[in-house]
Amino acid sequence: MNRNTAQNSIRPWAVIFWLLVWQGASMLFVALWPNGHLLLASPVSAALRLGELACTAAFWRAVGGSIAHIFGGFLVGCVLAVALAVLSARWHLVRELLYPLTAAVKAVPVVSFIILALVWLDSRSLPLFISALMVFPPVYLNVLAGIAAADAKLLEMARVFRVPLGRRLTGIYLPAVLPYFRSAVSLALGLCWKGGAAAEVIGLPSGTIGERLYTAKVYFQTPDLFAWTAVIVAVSVLFEKLFLALVDALAGKAGL
């Protein structure tokens, strides 16, 4: 492990330190105010609440509902981004046409898109749309950069030997694009869960994590708030690991 990797990885002692800070702060709130436990739930109470919730069918329905919307949006965004990156690499006009769109999606706050989209879409479609929107710019731009990074000398070789497009795609473009796609997916999965959860909290589709988060906020159920937030983080990390493992397995199968 090199020095930078060691510096960027999460160390158990640092996690324990911050959990202790959180526990200390919640105990301080309880000591200072009669209803201090409502202002900041302790990590212990959040963990206990998470355990209780995980024993209910409604919990798993909410998790499943959110995964279906948000991961569905991720897949739609990915497919669109890759397809349009290929078209943009082939036709300069498509790239010029899409440039303002990607710049706008990157610059405009996600909440503006959520409120605007809520005017046109029903609350169930909203997280799917927002997740796809969040995924689009990083995947599109990275795949486009990967295509541009394909070795021009190898492409010339393929042209001289009249290698068909299919083999050029798998032999030259795929190895060039895959590292870019991998880092884009890693970034995009985090973004789509953040954006998708925000869309659920605002749109309130029934039977989702976002709806449960909103309910927890309205009724000052702060242990629930932390428990559901932990679920979002856990599901986001899990999906990132699973998807990257799938990409790595495909790359390994292709000998990359």
């Binding site: 000398k153 190898l154 010339e156 070789m157 393929a158 001289v160 030997f161 009249r162 290698v163 068909p164 083999r167 032999g171 030259i172 190895p175 292709a254 000998g255 990359l256």
Partner: peptide, 27 residues
């Protein structure tokens, strides 16, 4: 003319083995 060539640089697919490189060109 259908050309075949050895370029100034090798221009091989580094991730494939020898037969893989031949298969890439010849299918």
């Amino acid at each position: 003319v259908r050309w075949s060539a050895v370029f100034q640089e090798n221009r091989l697919l580094e991730h494939l083995d020898a037969m893989g490189n031949l298969r890439f060109v010849l299918g």
